[in-house]
Structure formats: structure tokens, C-alpha cells
Simulated assay, not measured.
Amino acid sequence: MTVLIGLSAALLATGCAAPATESEALRLSKQYFTDNNAAAAQNPQAQQAFFRRTQHPDFADRICDLGATTVELDPALSTLRPDPGFAPEGIRPRGEIWVVGVEVTTRTAGSGTGHQIGSQHLVLLDGRMYGFAPCPRG
């Protein structure tokens, strides 16, 4: 018990948060995907607002406008795992990095325009789950 208290005190003193439990990451990931899909079901503007709200703060200036397109994400939550080496554009985001397999469906004006399997990175930071808004590759 004394060791745990000492470790917690040391983590707090250094400004580090204790690692999230897998159940916490799973719960917050489920909520992230539920909220994403609810926004996509509303309209592109609602989803764009969701992306702005949930974009990782270290990448806040990297949000693309998807126009009339929405992105539905169906995660395979059993694949959720830590991915501490993830560093988009060579920048490692602050927080605990997780990756999960997803099925992605894009729609424009309500019609399906794309469907693929991929992965989604999420980052747990300060008790919130953040993502990275999708940007079309040209």
C-alpha cells in the first residue's frame, strides 16, 4: 500500500498521469465512436463540429473540411490496444495512444461513396478521448 501511495505521489509530482486502465480506454473509445456516428447521422455540419471538439489539441490546426461528406466508423473494439509509437507527421501526441480496427463508410448527400477497413488512433488525455479528423488524400 505504501508503495502504491508513493508511486501515485511521484507521478503527480512529475506531472504524469497514471496509465489508463484498459476498461477506461474501452469505455471512452465506445463513447467517441457513438458520438461520431450520431453526429454523422445528423449532417455534415454536426460531424464537422464533432471533429473540431474531439481533435487532439496538439493537432488542432489540422482539421479538414469534408464538405457534404460524413464518415461513419464501426470499431472492432476487441482490437483496441496501446500504440505508444504512433507519431503522425513525426509528432508524438501527448497522452496515452490507442489504436483500434474500424470499418469506415463515407456518405455524400446520404449516398454511400466509400467503404473500407482501416485503423483509428485515439488518445486519452486529461480524462478525454481525442482523435484525428480525417483528411482526404489527393
Rank of each mutant, 00 (worst) to 15 (best):
N37D: 11
A40V: 09
D58W: 08
T108N: 06
A38C: 04
T54D: 10
G114K: 02
L77Y: 04
F51L: 07
T106V: 12
T113N: 12
A49K: 11
V123F: 01
R52L: 12
C16D: 09
F132T: 06
Y130N: 11
A17N: 09
L124P: 01
D35K: 07
N36T: 13
C16I: 10
I63K: 06
S8L: 07
E72H: 02
T113R: 03
I97Q: 08
L77K: 02
G112A: 08
Q42L: 14
L124I: 10
A13I: 07
F51W: 13
A133F: 04
A109E: 15
G90W: 03
T14H: 06
L12I: 03
V102W: 01
L77V: 11
T113S: 13
T69Q: 14
P82G: 05
P134D: 05
Q31W: 12
A109C: 11
R52E: 15
Q116W: 01
T54Q: 14
D58R: 02
H115V: 01
P82K: 07
L28P: 00
A17M: 12
G67N: 04
S8C: 10
E103V: 01
A13P: 03
C135R: 01
F59C: 08
A76M: 03
A60T: 14
F86V: 03
P84M: 03
A60I: 15
L80G: 08
I5C: 07
F59D: 11
A17V: 12
N43K: 00
C16T: 14
D74F: 08
L77A: 00
S23Q: 12
I97Y: 07
L11Y: 02
V71L: 06
P93A: 13
V102I: 12
P19T: 14
A76K: 01
S8M: 11
F50M: 09
T2P: 08
A87E: 10
A68E: 06
Q120S: 03
G110Q: 04
G138Q: 09
L125V: 11
I63E: 14
R27S: 11
D65R: 03
P88F: 06
A133W: 00
A133V: 12
W98R: 08
A76C: 06
D74S: 07
L125K: 08
V102A: 14
P75F: 00
G127R: 02
S8N: 09
P57W: 05
I5N: 15
P84G: 02
P93E: 11
Q116L: 04
P84L: 10
A39R: 00
F33Q: 00
A13H: 04
L11T: 04
A49M: 09
D126S: 14
M1V: 12
L11W: 00
Q47Y: 00
L125D: 14
P82C: 06
E89P: 01
T21G: 13
A68I: 06
V104I: 14
